[in-house]
């Protein structure tokens, strides 16, 4: 998983669009996916997402690689729906899943993390009234995006270690060291944030 970590040099219209507009578009698409029923509507929305990806000039191979887990999920869910309810619902489920994930990928790929932070900080401004500094919210979001791939790697490592010892069937054996490492890394990160003066 890379989430927001992708490198980008292209400058397409979608790169220049304001962050708020892109997030609003994503939200609208989400509502449309849920609100509409039927195969034509689902395929139409998927076509919209694919068109957006084309406009944004997303590189095909890295994008597909990034979406691999979702593709697998979509294929499994589609197969189940085809068996249980027929081809119509199957196409709908798969198309809806891919539409939202692809659209999310377009927004994240065309928005530098720093600008996304600024946009989210603006969106979080009303929270100031309840004592939450908007900058802190934006930073926390950036930290989540940065930390997910790291934790995923940690989990794979401890699972591999458990597998090497032949004890992988007991989830305690790999979950406990994984969580201990996650807590330890979080505290190192907190130290670094304080040391760099980013948060006090």
């Amino acid at each position: 998983m890379t989430l927001l970590g992708a490198h980008r040099t292209a400058r397409t219209p979608l790169d220049r669009a304001p962050v708020g507009a892109k997030l609003a578009g994503l939200a609208l698409l989400g509502v449309a996916v849920v609100a509409t029923r039927g195969v034509p509507a689902s395929l139409g929305l998927l076509a919209l997402a694919v068109a957006a990806a084309a406009v944004a000039a997303l590189p095909a191979r890295p994008t597909l690689r990034g979406m691999l887990p979702v593709l697998v999920t979509a294929v499994l869910a589609g197969a189940y729906q085809a068996w249980a309810r027929g081809w119509g619902p199957a196409v709908e489920v798969v198309a809806n899943l891919l539409t939202l994930v692809l659209a999310a990928a377009v927004v994240t790929a065309t928005t530098p993390a720093d600008r996304l932070l600024d946009g989210l900080a603006r969106a979080a401004r009303p929270l100031r009234r309840v004592g939450v500094p908007p900058d802190l919210v934006a930073l926390a979001v950036a930290l989540v995006l940065r930390t997910v791939p790291e934790i995923a790697r940690t989990v794979h490592e401890v699972r591999d270690a458990a597998r090497a010892r032949g004890v992988e069937r007991d989830p305690r054996v790999w979950l406990t060291p994984a969580v201990l490492r996650v807590v330890g890394r979080a505290r190192d990160l907190g130290e670094a944030l304080a040391a760099r003066g980013i948060v006090d």
Binding site: L139, E150, I151, G190, E191, L193, A194
Partner: peptide, 13 residues
């Protein structure tokens, strides 16, 4: 606050 932010974000992840 730094450690709290780090813990909150890390556990969300």
């Amino acid at each position: 606050v730094a450690t709290d932010v780090a813990l909150v974000a890390t556990f969300a992840a």
